[in-house]
Design a protein around this nucleic acid. Sequence first.
DNA 1: TTGAAAGCGCTAACAC
DNA 2: GTGTTAGCGCTTTCAA
Lengths: 346, 346
Amino acid sequence: MTTIRDVARKANVSVATVSRVLNGSSKVSQKSKDAVLAAQKELGFYLNANARALAQRDSHTIGIVVSDVSDPYFGAMVRACDDAIHDKGYNLIVGQGHHNDARERRAIDDLISYQCRGLIVHALALDEDTLRSYLETVPYMVMINRVVPGYESRCLACDNYQGERLAVDELIAHGHRKIAYINSCHSILDAQERLQGYIDSLQAHGIKYDPRLVFSGEPSLEGGASAAHELLKHLKPKHDFTAVACYSDVMAAGLMGTCHHHQIRIPEDISITGFDNLFLGKCLIPSLTTIDNPVKLMAEEAIARSLQLYEGLPIAPPHRIDVSLIARDSVRDINHDEAAQFIPLW
Amino acid sequence: MTTIRDVARKANVSVATVSRVLNGSSKVSQKSKDAVLAAQKELGFYLNANARALAQRDSHTIGIVVSDVSDPYFGAMVRACDDAIHDKGYNLIVGQGHHNDARERRAIDDLISYQCRGLIVHALALDEDTLRSYLETVPYMVMINRVVPGYESRCLACDNYQGERLAVDELIAHGHRKIAYINSCHSILDAQERLQGYIDSLQAHGIKYDPRLVFSGEPSLEGGASAAHELLKHLKPKHDFTAVACYSDVMAAGLMGTCHHHQIRIPEDISITGFDNLFLGKCLIPSLTTIDNPVKLMAEEAIARSLQLYEGLPIAPPHRIDVSLIARDSVRDINHDEAAQFIPLW
DNA sequence: TTGAAAGCGCTAACAC
DNA sequence: GTGTTAGCGCTTTCAA
């Protein structure tokens, strides 16, 4: 392994000078600079980031833990975080929790020991007490999609309640009154709030909430499909329900696949709404009416807060990230005639 | 910052003992172990991974660079790599190249300086000479989806050629003879090989290859959509072409959205094939006939080779990862009657 | 503008 | 079993 020492020797300067050059310090003569750069190139030398982090007490690194990067929602989230820190010279380290408390714990622990300067955590499985103690011992940790009481300003979430209200309002505006709901089986904040939005929207329009119209599964494609199977086992489409609101776009996609399998047409027979406004929703046919959950904003806000906390700066008061309805083709008037009405996708 | 020293003091042992306990060494008395663990818990202590990496000359870390984690293909790839190393006690660091040579270079450089013990690189934009010099200076670097001559055994790719042949053969077997192709505009190995597979399949069936049936775009949803727009601007569906083979599932999804927009029905009017066998393809309606590109296998193989190289072990000779056809609902006999024939999705 | 040298927090001989 | 201590590769005073 070649070290800064080798470079110094080859360039005929001290290690301090090499360090100065490689870190872009101003106080170096052009001559030294050239010599160092030449030596570096010749040796194919890279500073050892571990040693650097140790000496500087700064890893230049931000950690994020999500359930699974191959989930489109988290893929987008990770991407947004990376974009938010890249220009600042930080690097992202990603941990995955896999819907499992031991893995979530290990992911967090690992990121802490890497001395990340920021820590963004999406925890699905860990209980509140554990999270509370992490928040206590890691002052720069910020949570997403989950609110731990007492730490509200370090917990970011979108306005789940309002979002689901918008979605169900949209269905009702199209004449639907028998509306089923497919929920995530992980009863953390977002699932609870979205369900409540569904219930309140119904009741605000004089529709009685019927728990038999609610089904749940893992927040994945497969989970959406299996919840849909349950739904279709118990209820008759067009008769018992004419629309389904879903916890997420991914679950909605699972539902759509299942409907297709059962020869139920969307939106002619059944209208569907999602939540998140993923890339995926634009690919589906029909394209999915959904709620825009601005991942980019969330990522930027989370990063900003975490960095501020790390530096001991005060952070903004808690707030919910605004959502909005994205109307596409998966919702149709309940009495719409069958002549297809196409809306441009892009 | 609390250090191993603080723990040692609190537990009334030496730092060496603390280190032994925390690293699971056997030769420690139960009494010391208990004392150390108690002190650790009380202080909320974590070993500093940077210091550890420095002292051990092992970062316990594997690096991977991909274009963009929010691309479903790379999301799946990253996930598969993480799964492949997690049990071995390594952590993944992800860099993103964003289809851009400067970012690709920086991503690789960063991972090298983190002293990753393994390095998996998907480079789209970097030229072959640069890659060659990286391969030369970083003996444990492995490339995916791209083959640099002279380094074949360190370059993993699926059998792109055979895959595309299978896809086009499938279209032809369903009676299609006027088959368009939507390609990636990045003319690296996989794009070239898949195109050749398309061409050769046509010719093997006595169909003349017509370059005017080939369109290209960025390998993304938007790129697929815009290539599709071009295609529809120049050619008349059902008349000039009855099927479209696509470079990837993602581009096929863009094509499907565009077709929907133009009121072209899939598969009644036009049959479509993708490539990769992503999760996404199962969500599409109709579900997408595609080529299984086994990301998991590729990830495992890449990780294994990189680790072996790091340890100076010999690695297996070059080989292409096998692909296979996944027949779903987006391809139909050219004279199929319109009565829908549904095939279960799951 | 430069160099010598003291750490950064940890591991791993080595000695006891 | 346990402690002492010399590094790991780098940054950063401090003095020249």
